[in-house]
């Protein structure tokens, strides 16, 4: 009786210790996925095309101080120096596209649920308040691009910066 009690007690204490133990040493990280757009045949009218990407994994295991994900972008440009203004490039993150993989059920929330134009100023799309978002989460943002009627033919590229940050 006493032996079995001791084993159970040990197991319970060990579980408690594990639950409150110091989180393994790691740091906040994000792993993005490529963003792609379909090929467009220019027709002299504005065309709205949807981008696609797969889940971006934010690993915030052990992170309790609050964190956020921001995006900036430059204009699209081609080798001939023609550009498409970044204001035509939009992003949103639906709350339903934030999925908890492991950890805190109080997952980060979207701060941009409707499409907003990207720019050179960081746009926050998701954040976790202090004490929340301690876990691994998949974020799948939606992108769309308005190809203006006056766009020149050619292959365009843009640089998007995705940042995950910890701060007040």
């Amino acid at each position: 009786m006493k032996t079995s009690y001791c084993v159970w007690k040990a197991l319970l204490w060990a579980l408690l210790a594990a639950a409150g133990a110091t989180i393994p040493a790691r740091a906040l990280a994000i792993t993005t996925a490529p963003i792609s757009f379909p090929i467009v045949t220019l027709n002299g009218a504005n065309q709205l095309i949807n981008g696609s990407t797969s889940a971006w994994r934010a690993n915030a295991t052990g992170e309790t101080g609050g964190w956020n994900v921001t995006i900036t972008s430059a204009d699209f440009s081609n080798v001939a120096g023609k550009t498409i203004a970044v204001s035509n490039f939009e992003v949103r993150l639906l709350d339903g596209n934030i999925v908890t993989i492991s950890g805190d059920v109080n997952r980060p929330t979207s701060t941009q649920t409707t499409f907003a134009a990207l720019s050179g100023t960081a746009l926050k799309i998701a954040s976790a308040a202090a004490g929340q978002g301690n876990g691994v989460y998949d974020l799948t943002p939606d992108f769309r691009l308005t190809v203006p009627a006056e766009t020149y033919t050619g292959d365009y590229s843009a640089t998007v910066t995705v940042a995950i940050g910890i701060g007040p």
Binding site: I35, F37, I39, I49, Y156, V160, G167
Partner: peptide
């Protein structure tokens, strides 16, 4: 891309910042 076709590519820079 073919004649009259236009493509859009996005390169991504990943950053992590701590305050």
């Amino acid at each position: 891309s073919g004649e009259g076709e236009t493509q859009f590519a996005v390169e991504i820079i990943q950053r992590v910042g701590v305050a």
